[in-house]
Amino acid sequence: MLLIQCPVCGVEAEETEFAPGGEAHILRPEPGCSDAEWSAYLFERKNPRAVHYERWRHAFGCGKWFHMARHTHTLEIFGVYAADAPEPPQEIRDRIAERTAP
């Protein structure tokens, strides 16, 4: 069971306090988009055996959403960052590069 640090309230708490929200950084297309774009938004998700950017909510805690970079196989957590970040911060990307270098 994961141990996750909420970037909003700062607690490091067990997974049961959190609710997963799936893959992060999926943009909601504008209403005039094509069926294919809308379908991709609704249904197409990565399922990597690798680093995964994902959404979590501190459901039993402060109630806030945030982002997490996590390796789906080793379960290493490279960092958590704000829910409104459009992409992972450089600091987290650097850490991932360093930690996953061959």
Binding site: G21, R55, R57, A59, G63, K64, W65, A83, D84
Partner: peptide, 10 residues
């Protein structure tokens, strides 16, 4: 939670 999700993330 649904309302908060949209307000916080979209």
């Amino acid at each position: 939670a649904w309302m908060e999700e949209w307000l916080q993330t979209e």
